[in-house]
Simulated scan of single mutants.
Amino acid sequence: MLTLFHAPGACSLASCIALEETDAEFEIKTVSFADGEQHKADYLRLNPKGRVPALVVNDGTVAAHSKDATSSQGTKGVLTETPAILFYLAQQFPQANLAPLGDNFALAQMQSFNSFLCSTVHVAHAHKLRGARWANKESSYEDMRAKVPENMSTLFTMIEETYLGQPWVLGEQYSICDAYLYTIARWLEGDGVDITAFPRVNAHFKRMEDRPAVQRALRH
């Protein structure tokens, strides 16, 4: 049994989509950012980072972050960080064909793309609302927010022209990269970026919205 802690609109949507693509038995628990649940003691015992996603694994295949996580949740382990959770699901449920597990180079390319989304694209987006992570002055926050459309446009131009295969990120094979890219592409409108400026990304976005797993994930 898997339990995913998820906040609507957050990057945890990618993990929701991946779960829906598998035949896993799972439960989705919503973390209300509006109520600050990610910063409350119960959730911090589970995930001290105070963020989503967090995947509670009951089958003993991963180690818990701490004794507190094991004892308080009665579980074998907790995974955090979207790339780690996505890769775990791809490996744990190979029948879902969510990663090129038999091709080490293609697998590394997949990890490279997901790392880029996590470490660069997501961080560029986060400067809109999370400026306090990097600065103390309101004037700095304003400057960060003003830069977000330019930065996101630059990064999605790179994805459009260099990293996006057809019909899926890795080419013919659908993968966890597609769930992750779709999740971040959903933020473009709020970041002041017109997705139609990127025809390949926009076409990929529409293909993703046609997938039943995506439609189910959006209902969580």
Rank of each mutant, 00 (worst) to 15 (best):
G190M: 05
Y43C: 06
E37Y: 08
G102A: 09
T75V: 15
P212E: 12
H127D: 09
R216S: 10
A185R: 05
E81P: 08
W187I: 05
P212N: 13
Q38P: 09
M1N: 13
A106M: 13
V62D: 01
A203T: 10
D59T: 12
H125V: 07
P94N: 14
Q92P: 07
D191T: 09
G165V: 02
A203K: 06
V57G: 03
S12R: 04
F156H: 03
S139H: 06
K29Q: 13
L117C: 03
I176S: 00
I176Q: 00
S66T: 13
V148K: 09
G50I: 06
M110G: 00
E209P: 08
E150F: 11
W134D: 02
C177Q: 04
N58T: 10
Q166T: 14
G9C: 01
A18Q: 08
V121F: 01
E20F: 01
G36Q: 05
N58K: 14
F116W: 13
K76W: 04
N114K: 00
Y180D: 02
R130H: 13
E27C: 01
E189T: 14
T154F: 14
G74R: 02
H39L: 15
K67E: 13
V52L: 12
A64S: 15
P167C: 09
E37K: 11
K67G: 11
E25P: 02
K76I: 06
K29M: 10
R216W: 10
D23E: 13
A90P: 04
N202V: 06
F205Q: 07
